[in-house]
Write a protein that binds this DNA or RNA. Structure first.
Lengths: 148, 148
DNA sequence: GACGGTATGTCAGGCTACTGACATGGCCCC
DNA sequence: GGGGCCATGTCAGTAGCCTGACATACCGTC
């Protein structure tokens, strides 16, 4: 069914390959997180909180690459399930610092283990030099894209 | 506001950086495509059709990393706007080969130019060796993740 | 020819994330 | 103190994409 390829080959486009890799990573993460009753965004939120306790709603949103509105509803759900806690009123300004509960920490531990295995698999075909090169390359892309 | 970082640093996680780069690329693409009345998925669909004329709905969906249901509604919209054409009935089986119209080709040309400029900016901080290394690395990640 | 397996196009429903908007609180400068 | 400016938390409405399901058409083996 695949017709003969004309014009530019998608397989040599950095943008397309980046999207393809990101999509594959997301699929792989969803696959291992689903049995644990987790989604990628929920995991990202918990992981952020574990590494940077006390993050606010807006900061979590930026870290998970979603809007603060989306993170807001997600945080309410996580709070209702007892995975995170937020003070009833802001200690300073309007910012509500969020923290993991012991239950949240346990749930995260399982999810984090599964995600780490996916990441190991993703890097399995790369040498150590390539792995560090990958970090440099991706960082360079991010800063270049952010620069307006 | 940023608290002292504890535990693993997100900036050294390949998965997080990959997501960050992909997110930055998508934002940059949306920014340049919006003035042209285009979205990333619409552009991806048109670009695929330009490079591989006659692709079916399902093939386009796989190429754009969405489900065939999503691509179906997108194709109807593009067809209603006169950017693509599909035969009324399948020449063989149920597969409806899609093709760009002259109008679709013109719209794509403008969008493609804008996207290429974004990609050039994304790669501006990389040497030629790093650019080819990036392709190899991303391809390796994709195949490793796809392997169950 | 009959059959199970696979792939396709399409319909219906639901969920997630988004944009738009508002009120509030911190910060800086005059 | 007053006023512009920005960031934050939140509410409402919308759009995009997804899962589930169905009928149909190809392809392999028997």
């Amino acid at each position: 069914m695949a017709p003969d390829r004309v014009g530019v080959d998608l397989e040599t486009s950095h943008g397309y390959l980046l999207k393809e890799a990101s999509s594959a990573l997301r699929s792989a993460m969803e696959e291992v997180l689903a049995p644990l009753g987790m989604t990628v965004t929920r995991y990202s939120c918990l992981e952020l909180l574990a590494q940077r306790p006390g993050l606010s709603n807006s900061e979590l949103a930026r870290g998970a690459f979603v809007t603060r509105q989306s993170m807001n509803v997600l945080l309410r759900a996580l709070e209702a399930e007892g995975l995170v806690t937020r003070p009833a009123e802001a200690p300073v300004g309007k910012v509500l610092p969020t923290r993991l509960t012991p239950l949240g920490r346990r749930r995260l531990a399982r999810a984090s283990k599964a995600v780490r295995e996916v990441e190991v698999r993703m890097l399995s075909g790369l040498t150590n030099a390539e792995r560090t090169a990958a970090l440099d390359i991706l960082r360079s892309m991010v800063t270049a894209l952010r620069a307006d």
